[in-house]
């Protein structure tokens, strides 16, 4: 298992963002769904080793991130795209991706080719030397995806990756996720249910800091057909049915 969470809780003052979550995830693409404030981003930030849990046991890639040496090794093998990714406007696309390849401590002799491969994967070859301040929002998002995948990570974390991408780019990105999911663990937090249906092998649905559903997209769809969910698509009906059940239970 690349991710092992055991009773993980994260509190901010009196507010509990993540509430005793237990989760084991191996290779594949896990879609993390849930309404705003459900705790998805906090959970993702803990997986990215940016945020420490208030309590519980967290193991990533078989290592304990509380140990500095382990944490460093995890980070070398990690790719992360935060929800709000800041950019250095004066950097070019290549410079930005290279910067993060170096911060991830990739061997310097591998960096140049890895950066070129990442740029090609997100289809930004024609903009490789362009300054980031000249790019559109969708292109900047793709730059963010490129820096996340530049080190061929074993654990890949995306927070709202398709925000700002046009439909064609979203299709390409889903294919990229599926490709990485063959060998790595990909966790993608999103509001877009159709992304989950198209790219994820598993779904976890969060509500009020807890995971209230874990299964395949087909199982989520089935819950919608059986329950009282609302929505235009079967997955949306499953999503809303489970959330409604979780809310009435709490």
């Amino acid at each position: 298992m690349n991710i092992e969470l055991s009773d993980i809780t994260r509190k901010f003052g009196r507010n509990t963002a993540v509430d005793e979550v237990t989760l084991d995830v191996g290779p594949g693409v896990l879609g993390l769904l849930g309404p705003n404030g459900a705790g998805k981003t906090s959970l993702l930030r803990m997986l990215a080793t940016i945020l420490s849990p208030s309590s519980g046991q967290l193991t990533l890639l078989g290592r304990d991130p509380r140990n500095p040496a382990d944490r460093r090794e995890i980070r070398r093998r990690l790719g992360y795209l935060p929800q709000n990714l800041g950019y250095y406007p004066s950097f070019t696309v290549v410079e930005f991706i290279e910067y993060f390849a170096l911060l991830k401590e990739m061997p310097p002799h591998l960096v140049t080719k890895a950066v070129a491969a990442a740029v090609e994967k997100v289809d930004l070859g024609s903009k490789a030397k362009a300054k980031l301040r000249t790019l559109s929002g969708g292109m900047l998002r793709r730059v963010g995806i490129a820096q996340a995948i530049v080190n061929e990570p074993e654990l890949l974390l995306f927070d709202e990756p398709t925000a700002g991408l046009d439909p064609e780019q979203r299709v390409a990105f889903r294919a990229l996720m599926r490709d990485f999911g063959q060998t790595a663990t990909v966790v993608v937090s999103t509001h877009l249910v159709e992304d989950v249906g198209a790219a994820c092998s598993e779904v976890a649905l969060m509500s009020n800091g807890k995971i209230v559903f874990r299964g395949t997209p087909a199982e989520l769809t089935a819950r919608g057909e059986a329950g009282q969910g609302v929505g235009d698509a079967p997955l949306e009906r499953g999503y809303s049915a489970i959330l409604a059940a979780a809310r009435s239970a709490s």
Binding site: A48, I50, R72, Y80, N84, L85, G86, F100, L102, K104
Partner: peptide, 14 residues
Amino acid sequence: IDPAWELSCSCAVS
């Protein structure tokens, strides 16, 4: 100060 501060915090260079 650093636009990509959060991302930098997830990198191996501390």
